[in-house]
Design a protein around this nucleic acid. Structure first.
Lengths: 110, 110
DNA sequence: CAAATATACATAATATTCTTAGGTATAACA
DNA sequence: TGTTATACCTAAGAATATTATGTATATTTG
């Protein structure tokens, strides 16, 4: 995996992007999905992910519902109404950021 | 400009990428170049840039030479020998990161 | 069937990295 | 001559992630 410091600042938009596309997901699932999509390039750490999810919930962007799989609990996260109202802007910001990174990596010959 | 938190973690690789391509640059020049390349999407703040440059110098990745333009000083930064020895890996990490971000934004239909 | 691995949540101390808000000074432009 | 641009810098605080733990159940494998 690439050096970890790079993830800083993008964890939240990554989480929101996935929840925007998938209705509801639980924490562990998010780590696996990200690992899968990025071909193992990004492995979210739980120490970063869970506090991020909790913060988004505290901010009213996400809501949760618990489910039991056998005796083990799963906490599903999904976008709230407020979450839906802010996601468009956040996804555009994320897009613009990644676009900017692409430009830096591959500057247009002008 | 997109929301600023996203830049976290990528400032250093951005700086190194530019210095990798340009031999030597000074701080203010870097801010302008980044703004230019990204069509205004990213405006580095000086409060972040200068400490980053100083750290890279302290780590032996960058070296400096001062030049006077009239009465005003300019501090040019360039990669040291050590800097050249680590830049390949750092640029690959940066590439992989941006690639991963592209995958998240635009997941492959499998 | 026991041990290892995977699933699934969580927190706390610490480190890293930026933002915001200053500060100083020269040069160019209107 | 006042405003904007150029050019450097630092410090307090906020935000974000790492590392190291902890707890517990479920599954795989030798």
């Amino acid at each position: 995996m690439y050096s970890k410091e790079l993830i800083k600042g993008t964890l939240q938009p990554i989480v929101l992007k996935l929840l925007h596309e998938n209705k509801r997901m639980y924490g562990y699932e998010i780590t696996q999905r990200v690992k899968d999509i990025t071909n193992g390039r990004i492995e979210l750490t739980e120490g970063a992910l869970y506090p991020t999810l909790h913060k988004l919930e505290a901010d009213g962007i996400l809501s949760t519902e618990k489910e039991f799989i056998g005796k083990r609990v799963r906490k599903y996260y999904s976008l709230t109404k407020k979450g839906h109202s802010v996601i468009a802007q956040k996804m555009q910001d994320f897009n613009e950021f990644v676009h900017a990174m692409n430009l830096i990596l591959n500057p247009k010959i002008s």
